[in-house]
Design a protein around this nucleic acid. Sequence first.
DNA 1: TATTGTTATACTCTATAACTATA
DNA 2: TATAGTTATAGAGTATAACAATA
Lengths: 162, 162
Amino acid sequence: MDLDARRIEAYFAFMEAGSLLQLLVDDQVRRDGNLSYPQFVLLARLADAPDGRMRMTDLADSAVHSRSGLSYQARLLEDAGLIQRTPSPHDDRSVTAAITDAGRDILARVMPGHLDAVRQGFFSVLDDSQVEALAVTLSAVRDRLRTLVPSATQRRRKAAGG
Amino acid sequence: MDLDARRIEAYFAFMEAGSLLQLLVDDQVRRDGNLSYPQFVLLARLADAPDGRMRMTDLADSAVHSRSGLSYQARLLEDAGLIQRTPSPHDDRSVTAAITDAGRDILARVMPGHLDAVRQGFFSVLDDSQVEALAVTLSAVRDRLRTLVPSATQRRRKAAGG
DNA sequence: TATTGTTATACTCTATAACTATA
DNA sequence: TATAGTTATAGAGTATAACAATA
């Protein structure tokens, strides 16, 4: 098989595996934590951030969201008591989102089953060297795509008339 | 870095790369062919099938759609003249969807730019052996996920009370 | 003037359930 | 009875544009 055909094969396999894995983990976070996947991702990002806090704009950019989309999800998470939004200390325009104890509890409840599902659906067919190779190549692809796909902030600047 | 951490890294890189690549190609098929990505996928599947035809149920299963979701997309594609639905010859319950000449034209117009976008966003950071490895591992993952995630038909049977 | 965040609004996608028709 | 497909309906997610407030 020539290289071009290999590329197309890899690309479609990637997209389809992505759709299927989405369905799998969507289901898991819904069942085990009553969360949508976008909500799970936001919680996981916050939990990983220093102090469990991030500025709304940075969170939107990091999660590939428009700001309005993030505001929508943040409202749902805040109504559920899983995050809290407060004015930022040094810039009164900004809002800082922080994961709450309840948010961390939910995440702790969901994570084990989540990793189990991913292990079963994804890693069970790979050996250690393949996992290593995937971590390397997919990180490179992700970084490359970040440079190509405009962030929420960049899209907004463009729309404003730049 | 231990293997578990490597796995988590690979998983999140995979999901984020998937989201970003979606944004990139969504945009491309919209601009170049006035298609949504789900519509592009359906056209590409049909174009690849023998005679450019597939039964609706098989198309739904292969594209990870519910049947109603497929009916919706099929109506849009048919209204645009890109596919045509006709009763199946040997089973009057079934409907066969076929890509039209106009559908093939659109696909021919979109594909080069599509592969270009994927090349730039995805393959430009990979060497030949990495592409080869990705094709192998991602195909295995996709096949594994297909066994785990119920198809549209299976989900329907379950809902009916099987 | 530029940036931050929210909201009003509209649109796309998807699914469940109910329905018709055929095997 | 089981399967194929459609439609009515509803809900989630996202984006654009308009807005208010602060830098």
